[in-house]
Design a protein around this nucleic acid. Structure first.
Lengths: 344, 344
DNA sequence: AAGAGCATTTATAACGTTGTATATTTAGCG
DNA sequence: CGCTAAATATACAACGTTATAAATGCTCTT
């Protein structure tokens, strides 16, 4: 049978509360008593029952992470970073996949479902957007990730989409590219706070600052941001005959698809077209050619998000701080696809 | 304040146990009573406290998944599949990363750490090997994944390493390749049950069946199986001047690294060298050229593993079934790197 | 050497749910 | 109708932990 605190207490000849005090590092325990309890714990192989602890203390020591799907590199790497960050706070991470399904995302933000076993939730939406802001009710510790919803009632960790996108395009301009295509714009033209729109805004700002007129033909709508769609968009652009010497793909997956299409068509990268992506997923370092990208600070996002969530969890009931918006630092990573690093 | 069953019971004018009965679909509840309770639940926004349920019932509704790290595509995709499979059984998944650290892997198998909150554990080791078999004590529901440990006291879901590797090499032979290199062998020569060894065995079997003499120079040891190491091994092989016209990489990540090195060296794939990998990660479909691979049946592995775990969780104490070894079906996926699909 | 004041320990009551045993109601049947 | 059996509902204990408050032990003063 699995030993309980009672068993330990009996073995050590102390009360159950003393065992609890030892386990929770309560200061006033005589060293000799602590020793006795610790060895009883050791001997019996006792482990605290986390359900009981959770019931009594109101904390489970687990946070939830809801992402569209781990199959997508960006989210796998995000989850990796979140799990590492949570570990530092001694928290476990329960991962839930929404599959980008609207109803499931709603279930997640309204606190339904499995995530009730958690002390708080990190949520990276894929379908819910600005219009669904009102659905988010901060009835439990909650931190929003990503760029789909702004101005909600909860903490939010995101990236500098506009300025980092501008920096990416600046990078292409610096190496002398003038006709810079963009793939990944949102199919409908409404400009709001979606990452696609924000990054397009950065693209336009960079061109404008450089005094280069905007050619709408070079902006290609692509959704969703999968490799095959990136490849397809690139094939279409190549087939259209519209000249271009640079490409800004709104994420790395699109860029990798585009690299493939360029390769198929016999175009040289970066000779004929310099390419930069966004996200700096691990894979970018190992494509042929390796892919320049924008590192949006994934680790920083994960760590910040976990820290904010921990603060919310520890927050006293009385004095809730106002919701915080944090933008992580970004960084341009220049690789072969824009003429840096090894020759490609 | 968060409502409890008591609040629901009071609102519906019934006893707390009746509320419990409604929630757990206990058969003998009058439809009118059920309605009353349900609407009270709805009105109060009641959600069961899973810690309390866990304490009382001994089940948390969460299983653990321990993998080296989600950053590696294979594990991200495995986790994705596991979470989907668990969902069908109404189970959440707590993901733990061992970072391939031996001590952490030991902590995981001995039931220490955070995973105490779970009803059972799926474990995919990276460091623990055959010699550590004795560490695994089935004191809680446990299913082993992967190919590092065989003959342990628990259920185990794995793949047909030898025969699928043989099939991969057969595929290269069928398209006329005769000098087939292998990268990813284990640095030490001891042949046991590690995936590297098993796959090398399949490689040898295929050559032998085709009557092709083994050239030890073509077998390259690589560890760990990362892209950069695959690229490096390939560069060395190319530099060595040893002729070869086919490559079997023991996993896709190595193969992708090798593709990169081949590209750098100006070799054509599949013209000069036909390449096949192992795992069929999503990325294989989108490399340039797309990568032929062995699909080891990841979804099947995940589903089988979750089902076995659920059975163990539900097992009565008295009659434990003997440990089960399940091998999933594999399948060769032929793509451009071996001359199939679009031209590459 | 008695008490003050702090360090240490303990008994007992929760936390919110489900299981057991039992009470009550309803339905079926002669 | 009255009796039995089934259906329905309930009270209360228990799961293993932490919090509270109170009890005991120890170390100093004076």
């Amino acid at each position: 049978m699995i030993p309980t605190m009672h068993d330990v207490a009996r073995a050590a000849g102390v009360s159950i509360k003393t065992v609890s005090n030892v386990i929770n590092d309560f200061p006033h325990v005589r060293p000799s008593t602590r020793m006795r309890v610790l060895s009883a714990i050791e001997e019996l192989g006792y482990r605290p029952n986390l359900s009981a602890r959770g019931l009594r203390s109101g904390r489970t020591g687990v946070i939830g992470l809801a992402v569209p799907e781990l199959r997508q590199n960006y989210f796998a790497e995000l989850a990796d970073s979140v799990i590492r960050a949570a570990e530092k706070h001694d928290l476990g991470v329960l991962v839930e996949q929404t599959s980008g399904d609207r109803d499931r995302e709603i279930a997640v933000v309204t606190g339904a479902g499995r995530l009730r076993l958690t002390d708080g939730l990190l949520f990276s939406p894929e379908r819910l957007g600005q219009a669904d802001r009102h659905l988010i009710r901060p009835t439990f510790p909650f931190v929003l990730l990503g760029e789909r919803i702004f101005g909600g009632p909860t903490d939010h960790v995101t990236m500098h989409n506009v300025s980092s996108a501008k920096a990416a395009v600046d990078h292409l301009l610096q190496i002398g590219r003038r006709r810079i295509a963009l793939i990944g714009a949102h199919p409908d033209q409404r400009e709001d706070v979606r990452p696609a729109d924000l990054r397009v805004r950065g693209y336009k700002a960079a061109l404008e600052a450089a005094g280069i007129p905007l050619d709408p033909q070079l902006i290609r709508a692509v959704a969703p941001w999968h490799r095959e769609n990136g490849a397809e968009a690139m094939r279409e652009l190549i087939a259209s005959g519209i000249p271009f010497d640079g490409l800004f793909a709104l994420n790395d997956t699109l860029a990798l698809g585009a690299l493939r299409a360029l390769g198929e068509a016999g175009w040289q990268v970066p000779g004929d077209v310099a390419v930069i992506g966004f996200d700096d997923i691990d894979e970018a370092r190992f494509s042929v050619p390796s892919l320049s990208s924008v590192d949006p600070g994934r680790d920083e996002i994960a760590e910040t998000a976990v820290e904010l969530l921990v603060e919310r969890i520890n927050e006293k009931d009385g004095d809730p701080l106002p919701p915080l918006l944090v933008k992580s630092e970004f960084r341009i990573v220049a690789r072969e696809s824009t003429g840096f690093g090894r020759p490609g």
